[in-house]
Simulated assay, not measured.
Amino acid sequence: MVHEHEKDSNFIYFLFFIFQCSKEGVKDSILAEEESLIGASMESLNKSVENFPSDPKVYFHRALRRIEKDDFGNALKDLNQSLSLLPDNQEALSERAELHFILKNYEQALEDYNRLLELDPFQRSYYYKRSMVYFALGDKLESVYDYLLYYDKENFNKNVFPASEKKKKRILLKKKMKEFKNNHEMIAEDFDFPFGGPDAEAYRRTQTYGTYNSIFDGLHLGEDWNGPRKGNEHLGDPVLTIADGLVFYAEDAGSGWCNVVRILHKIKDKEGFTFVDSLYGHLQDMNVNPGDYVKKGQQIGTLGNCRGKWVGHIHWEIREKDLPIGGGYDKKVPKEFVHPTQFVKKHLKKK
């Protein structure tokens, strides 16, 4: 004799069995559809697009077939359509990024690789491919960052997120730099010395611009300044920005530099605008970050001695071109470097 609850139980098992079979059947049919698309001719793919215009897979597979035939323009249209229906499909994004690169649409390729790395930051190959895009765009620094991240396979996982955060900051800074350069109201109309209030009161040069230094066997590319008292008695004195501008570098540069701040200033001239970069080295502390807008006379740091490596002073440079930090000395003074005191006196507003 079969009890009622056993009947119910058997019926439930029966329903579950039917459900499993139907699920497997659906899965098999999907796989069969995928396989048919992979091996399909252009004619059948065109029919699939007509029959299933809202299915991203048919556009994706037709794009692959078109890429095989070097029909890149139409392949790109198919990939765009596929991604409009399924925006975060990594396969389609990856194919489109590579296709953009082939077609020299480097900005679009960069957008796709950025999105791919948002979706999967641990896919090492994306960093390598994005490094090539950056190189093609002429951004060699970002290209090197990505390549080193890709190359250091052993430490890749622990480096990904710190590198990603640094990249976000670099992207934000680039955006601010662009805004700064295009904003004609952000002009440095007055310059002054970076210490001691107006006209560097009581402060003194301890090494002048362009003088030969036997220790470094080179010419000094900036000026060294300290307070009226000798030695390290002025450690911690305020260091001020020489004019309005945008901070684009503020970090420990290592070696003999230690903390360095660099600020971009925009100057109006007869032809429009020119830009100069002021550099402040050996700081004990920094009071600004990259991306900060600063006003003339604002404190950006304090006088230091590079953690005891030098007697306390500030190394101050002015450049007319964005160059690597360098070493503070050279066999000859490059044309991009400017005499700091002469520059400030030339642009100092008459009281």
Results as ranks from 00 to 15, higher is better:
58 V>G: 05
62 R>E: 08
54 S>F: 09
78 D>E: 09
79 L>N: 04
87 P>Y: 06
78 D>Q: 08
105 N>L: 09
72 F>W: 12
99 L>W: 06
92 A>L: 01
62 R>V: 09
62 R>S: 06
67 I>F: 05
94 S>Q: 10
59 Y>K: 04
82 S>K: 07
52 F>Y: 05
90 Q>L: 02
110 L>D: 10
99 L>S: 05
113 Y>I: 06
97 A>L: 05
72 F>C: 05
87 P>A: 05
62 R>Q: 08
111 E>A: 14
86 L>N: 13
112 D>T: 03
107 E>V: 14
54 S>N: 12
90 Q>T: 09
91 E>T: 01
100 H>N: 13
83 L>E: 03
62 R>F: 10
98 E>W: 08
111 E>K: 15
77 K>F: 10
64 L>N: 12
84 S>P: 07
73 G>P: 01
73 G>T: 12
60 F>M: 04
95 E>A: 00
100 H>A: 02
75 A>H: 07
102 I>E: 08
108 Q>S: 15
80 N>D: 03
60 F>P: 00
96 R>A: 00
103 L>Q: 15
114 N>Y: 08
72 F>L: 12
93 L>E: 00
111 E>R: 12
109 A>R: 10
68 E>R: 12
55 D>P: 05
91 E>H: 04
56 P>I: 00
90 Q>R: 07
69 K>R: 14
79 L>E: 01
83 L>S: 07
105 N>M: 11
57 K>F: 01
86 L>C: 10
57 K>Q: 04
112 D>E: 02
73 G>E: 15
71 D>K: 15
71 D>L: 15
94 S>V: 03
67 I>M: 14
87 P>D: 04
58 V>Q: 02
82 S>R: 10
71 D>C: 11
111 E>C: 06
72 F>H: 13
53 P>I: 01
101 F>A: 11
54 S>R: 10
84 S>I: 09
66 R>Q: 14
99 L>P: 08
66 R>E: 10
111 E>L: 11
103 L>D: 09
90 Q>V: 01
76 L>N: 04
116 L>G: 05
63 A>P: 08
79 L>S: 03
105 N>Q: 13
64 L>M: 14
110 L>H: 09
101 F>K: 13
113 Y>R: 07
98 E>L: 13
66 R>A: 08
61 H>F: 15
80 N>G: 08
103 L>G: 07
63 A>T: 05
107 E>Y: 13
55 D>E: 09
78 D>L: 10
71 D>R: 14
109 A>W: 11
60 F>V: 00
69 K>F: 10
85 L>P: 07
63 A>H: 10
69 K>V: 08
81 Q>T: 15
86 L>G: 07
103 L>C: 06
60 F>S: 01
112 D>V: 03
74 N>E: 15
112 D>A: 04
87 P>H: 04
101 F>G: 03
63 A>L: 13
76 L>G: 00
91 E>G: 03
92 A>F: 00
60 F>G: 00
73 G>A: 14
65 R>A: 15
89 N>L: 00
83 L>A: 07
77 K>R: 09
